Simulated assay, not measured.
Amino acid sequence: MAVLCQTLMRIVEELAPVRLAEQWDNVGLLVGDPQERVNGVIVALDFNHEVLEEALEKGADFIVVHHPPIFHPLKRLTAGGPEGKLLLQAIRQGVHVYAAHTNLDKVTGGVSDQLAEVLGLTAVEPLSSTVREPHYKLVVFVPETHEYQVRKAIGDAGAGFIGNYSHCTFRAPGTGTFLPQSGANPFLGQVGEMEEAAEFRLETIVPKRLLSAVIDAMLKAHPYEEVAYDVYP
């Protein structure tokens, strides 16, 4: 049964929360679309041609790897080198690649704990504490008729996670006012006429790594052609 890529991401992140990753690390979904459906999962240490071929043979289009195949910032993505060729092949085949690296190393019961158990170590304790993943506050103004649609879209994209709760938001009613100018295509009102609309101020928290995806989902779900929203650190 096919499931959303976003659903699998949440399952992996429940096991190895992204907030545990080192600041220099590059974890999470590295290739793919969180809103696409996937049919199978394969797990590997590294992402290489052999792993991709095995995934394609088995009909798996979501690969969880330990070592991130994209680590340093990419300046270009071409088939001129082995890394680019592999990533382009994954994209063409619709294969998603997700990395769980230092977060999987550090989580309780993760790689480090497993190694300690194999080595017979006792009195094991962390070398250092982990800084919480940076978050932003997202505020958007949406007409009452589309509040649920927008709220669900941003929650499905990963906004509003607090502990074991998802889709956490706050809303407050208000009145939006605007005057559509020539060339506008307003969802409400007429060009050249002042309009008042019953709206909600909808706010939530968003992890830094998901901010772009959440904003994209919000804009797609919002009925206005010009969306009023704010992002606060």
Score class of each variant (00 low, 15 high):
residue 173 P to N: 03
residue 17 P to C: 07
residue 79 A to F: 06
residue 98 Y to P: 06
residue 193 E to G: 00
residue 16 A to L: 04
residue 150 V to L: 04
residue 7 T to K: 11
residue 109 G to S: 12
residue 173 P to V: 03
residue 99 A to N: 09
residue 124 V to A: 04
residue 208 K to D: 13
residue 9 M to C: 15
residue 107 V to L: 04
residue 215 I to D: 01
residue 51 V to Y: 02
residue 202 L to M: 11
residue 216 D to N: 12
residue 191 V to T: 12
residue 131 V to W: 01
residue 19 R to N: 08
residue 192 G to Q: 07
residue 54 E to V: 09
residue 77 L to H: 09
residue 162 I to V: 15
residue 165 Y to P: 01
residue 111 V to F: 10
residue 231 V to M: 08
residue 26 N to R: 14
residue 106 K to N: 10
residue 155 G to L: 05
residue 148 Y to D: 13
residue 151 R to W: 03
residue 59 G to E: 06
residue 52 L to Q: 00
residue 129 S to A: 13
residue 40 G to E: 02
residue 164 N to G: 05
residue 196 E to Q: 14
residue 199 E to W: 04
residue 209 R to S: 15
residue 158 G to E: 02
residue 181 Q to L: 14
residue 138 L to T: 09
residue 197 A to D: 11
residue 229 Y to A: 07
residue 34 P to F: 07
residue 182 S to F: 01
residue 167 H to P: 09
residue 221 A to E: 02
residue 156 D to V: 05
residue 77 L to M: 12
residue 28 G to M: 05
residue 205 I to H: 08
residue 215 I to N: 01
residue 92 R to L: 11
residue 63 I to D: 02
residue 57 E to S: 13
residue 187 F to K: 08
residue 178 F to V: 10
residue 70 I to F: 03
residue 124 V to G: 06
residue 140 V to C: 10
residue 101 H to Q: 08
residue 54 E to P: 01
residue 115 L to F: 14
residue 126 P to S: 02
residue 233 P to R: 13
residue 102 T to K: 05
residue 81 G to E: 12
residue 226 E to A: 12
residue 196 E to I: 06
residue 104 L to M: 14
residue 5 C to V: 14
residue 126 P to L: 01
residue 72 H to P: 00
residue 21 A to N: 10
residue 10 R to V: 08
residue 140 V to Y: 05
residue 29 L to H: 10
residue 42 I to E: 05
residue 144 E to K: 15
residue 79 A to T: 12
residue 45 L to F: 04
residue 95 V to W: 00
residue 28 G to Y: 05
residue 174 G to L: 04
residue 114 Q to T: 15
residue 59 G to P: 09
residue 217 A to C: 05
residue 126 P to Y: 01
residue 150 V to R: 01
residue 126 P to M: 00
residue 191 V to D: 01
residue 132 R to T: 11
residue 32 G to E: 06
residue 108 T to I: 08
